[in-house]
Design a protein around this nucleic acid. Sequence first.
DNA 1: TCCTGGCACTCGGACTCGTTGAGTGCTAAT
DNA 2: ATTAGCACTCAACGAGTCCGAGTGCCAGGA
Lengths: 335, 335
Amino acid sequence: MTEERRRAVLHAIVEGYVATHEPVGSKALAETQALGVSSATIRNDMAILEEEGLIAQPYTSAGRIPTDKGYRSFVDQLAASALSDAHRRAIGTFLSDAVDLNDVVERSVRLLSQLTRQVAVVQYPSLRESAVRRVELVRMGTEHALVVVVSADARVEQQSIALGEATSDESFERAVREINATALGLGGARLEAALTLWAEAPDQVPWAGTVADVVVAATRGGTVERVVFAGASNLARAGSGLEAATIAPVLDALEEQVVLLRLLHEMADEGDDVSVRIGAETHHEALSRTSIVAAAYGRDAASLVGALGPTRMDYPGTMAAVRAVARYLSKVVEL
Amino acid sequence: MTEERRRAVLHAIVEGYVATHEPVGSKALAETQALGVSSATIRNDMAILEEEGLIAQPYTSAGRIPTDKGYRSFVDQLAASALSDAHRRAIGTFLSDAVDLNDVVERSVRLLSQLTRQVAVVQYPSLRESAVRRVELVRMGTEHALVVVVSADARVEQQSIALGEATSDESFERAVREINATALGLGGARLEAALTLWAEAPDQVPWAGTVADVVVAATRGGTVERVVFAGASNLARAGSGLEAATIAPVLDALEEQVVLLRLLHEMADEGDDVSVRIGAETHHEALSRTSIVAAAYGRDAASLVGALGPTRMDYPGTMAAVRAVARYLSKVVEL
DNA sequence: TCCTGGCACTCGGACTCGTTGAGTGCTAAT
DNA sequence: ATTAGCACTCAACGAGTCCGAGTGCCAGGA
């Protein structure tokens, strides 16, 4: 079937180009690949693939390189491939002795960047909304106090607030008692309502509103989103295929966080096992020469882990590694 | 004086090369700089400077560029220059509304990378030993509790502990009262002694020792050292003068932390206002093409803030910016 | 003793130009 | 539908040439 062979030709071109970073020609394909046809036939196929916008020539009469669309087609037809045993073992040993969430994330991102030889990104698990277990107010000097909120899922958040005018010890104590009585066990909208009511009570301390805000903010889920990355050097390493001028904007985007977060969110919505954005599909000028492979982890699938590299990357390998790390992370995080 | 003019020639070469990234020749110097001598004289001076190892030619009969030693001489003779007003104002507005330590560090590193157009690094302030302001125990289920320690410098540390066998509410409450009475205002060895005594009291709850350990650990100073960086893209940006191959190892070193930390420690020991390492002086292959300008901040001068860039960097400007940010950080951190 | 003008020399960068070879598109034959 | 053949294109490469910025050195002047 001719249609099928064309796919094979595309695959061969993608793999060849990824391996060598050089345009691949019809003759080379005819020789190295066992397609059973001559170079002339391959040339014809190539002409068609080019018409379809899947491959392109850097200049007249050079070999062909895949376009973003070509990579896309390649990726879409990719069967889930397994990670090598060695890698699988690496994940186990590397992540097994992590002590806390920070450590898990830190190790994961390092590991993934090594497995893929790309820049790895891990979005911190977005915290779920929780209820108040305890609110503490600790005076720090006469004009400041520290609000410490312990939520039901054992998270502790603190923030320093200004008391404004001097507050007597009695009203301070009273405020602490009251806020605990009011907020205990509540979360979300009910917490907010109860605290608003409390803060607006007559004869209330002037900083009640501030405290209420802090408590609400502390129990609200995933407000601070953060993504950490590792392996930035892989972008610059020889053979990445990106020139210095291309790298700077990518590094900026990584540090920006917000750009990356939006992109990851979009990808999470796709709901695939592993989702891939190729080149211009990222919708970001800075990332137009890079691709990103991401997978959700955790129960509610709101957090992502991924790898970012040049469009000319090893998609099957990267996808396998990302998938494996995401699975592992899910296990660890869902405890 | 001829000696003095030679210095001027060196300065002019450094400044010229920093500005243009191109070797500077005797003729150009004679014309642009008001040295009052001819190009031939400058050539003679250059020959001497080259003998002294302060400048070099990339190839026979090209202009001269400064060597590491040349930069060093230039830097050593640099008078402390002031930061521009605009920059000074930027520091104020940028850092003034930071809410906590994390925020301060985060903002500082961003700011410094923008001011210097280099990679900025900030070492987290190594925390001083502090006294206990408040200890809270929050029950999480029947068998676990959360120990929350608020120290005098407004730090909050928490850790979850297992209670072992069931503890009655009364003894739980009593433990909280006792530990606060015992520990309040103490730190260091005295705190440790007092808590040990308390934990070993007859009729004490079985987990008293665990709590004591947590409280002591929470008030002990700086065990984890960390350095954050920002502006990595400045390395890759056009005009940095570093090629892709040079950048990758630098990025690795930045992510390594340990390499950077050791270097910063060494620099802290020099005790200067602002200390500078140029090229090979960093004693790290990866950083041999870069310089780092660092200044200590905070009371005990154990934490550093710095900027890292190509050896061919604007030393006066960078030093001024680093100095200014360090001063500002000192003010904020020493509250 | 220090500076200067002059001069021969060097050598990378830029330019041209022909060669090479990988790669293409097209066409006619199978 | 495939293939062999052929004319064509064009980047890469190397050799040759020129240019000019920049040098080192020397002899003469302040």
